[in-house]
Design a protein around this nucleic acid. Structure first.
Lengths: 150, 150
DNA sequence: CTTTTTAGTTAAGTAGACTGAACTATATAC
DNA sequence: GTATATAGTTCAGTCTACTTAACTAAAAAG
């Protein structure tokens, strides 16, 4: 009961700190690459969920098919994305991150990761262990919810 | 040593899951309010760091003073922000969230919070306790780094 | 085999974010 | 007290994202 009461505010405070930090980090990084946020988000999406078609892009970002097509076109021009014909349906396209695109996202992740290393450096081994265990629980819970919905 | 090795990958996996989820959540929410991402980000910033001047906005978002002025103008027009003269320096302005702006951000936070409640619901009281403790550690570590830098 | 859906592209036009430059007003330096 | 630096605004113009509408081509339905 007490734990239930305690849990949510803690999660909240932490989330506030963390999200703010990571959002700023990503948008700063996106800017430094010369890509716009929408363009960058598409690369992130592809990194996270793997290859997909045009229609999924427009659905996920809630933009028109035309907008998706135009954004993707720019990313293909820039060499971040590969757009091939889906062999099983010749109308459809298959979007995949190119090596360049993949490296870019990886670089961004590394950068965010560096901050976490800083975090780690201020903690004792025991504290780190506690946190590791907790995060495994949280990650699994998050994934379970994700799966439950789909 | 083992903990050190274990810690970072855990943090990383967790971060990947979480950040993706929360970024999408925020941008979706921002869109639903009718505000653009840059406009919304300014409100978030103000919520997070408290009142500030124009110059801080342009610095934090790495945009020109002109751009900041225009974005803020729109938010003031929309009633999300109050822009008053700084009594200690009559050139400067003081930006504060209005009640409307504050409520909007709060609503977004609540929405994200709901997801976390879902997370909590899949966890036992004992697990929640562990996670609470861990997140307090993490939050404090994050704040310490933040302070150390400024 | 025609009809209709579905996947995506192209084009024209709107709206927002952004920049540099010119400007006002206050504060600071000498 | 003049000169300069600082805080912010306004304006004109550029770039990007986005939308609707008209289009092509392939797939699915009848």
């Amino acid at each position: 009961m007490t734990d239930q009461v305690q849990f949510s505010p803690t999660l909240r405070v932490w989330m506030d700190t963390f999200m703010h930090r990571s959002m700023r980090g990503w948008s700063h990084f996106a800017k430094s690459t010369g890509l716009s946020m929408p363009q960058f988000s598409i690369l992130m999406q592809l990194h996270h969920k793997g290859p997909c078609g045009m229609s999924e892009v427009s659905e996920r970002f809630d933009i028109s098919a035309a907008a998706a097509s135009q954004l993707v076109e720019k990313l293909v021009q820039g060499g971040y994305l590969e757009r091939t014909e889906d062999p099983s349906d010749r109308r459809a396209k298959l979007l995949t991150l190119s090596a360049k695109g993949s490296e870019l996202i990886q670089l961004g992740i590394e950068e965010r990761y560096r901050w976490m290393d800083e975090l780690a450096s201020t903690l004792s081994a025991d504290e780190q262990k506690k946190i590791s265990e907790a995060l495994v629980l949280l990650t699994n819970a998050a994934k379970e919810i994700e799966n439950r919905k789909s």
